[in-house]
Amino acid sequence: MARALITVPPNAKRGEVIEVRVLIQHPMETGYRPGSDGRILPRDLIRKFSCRYDDGKSNEIVFSAELYAAIAANPLISFHTVATGSGTLTFLWEGDNGFMQSEMAAIKVS
């Protein structure tokens, strides 16, 4: 499993805009580069990222992105959302070769 670094403020005030940062280990191989033997390296990309926020009342996707070949390896994604209630943020990365990884982070809203 790839390693991921999730940065979510552990505590927030209701209605506050919070910044979420996620960094994941992934080669993001474009499918255009030749390897050391001269052959094209097969494409291996993360294609989709999404973040679901379960605040106890609603459980919806607050951010999603589609990733392409021009995104660097070990992509860092940073976005903002409104802290609506205590709960969990679930992050999901999906990619080529059946790559799928899910991580969770808790947030406490007062």
């Binding site: 670094l5 940062r21 960094l23 390896a73």
Partner: peptide, 13 residues
């Protein structure tokens, strides 16, 4: 540290 990709290797270490 939340942006530094090297921290991924640190976590592995």
């Amino acid at each position: 540290d939340t942006q530094n990709p090297a921290m991924l290797w640190v976590k592995d270490g």
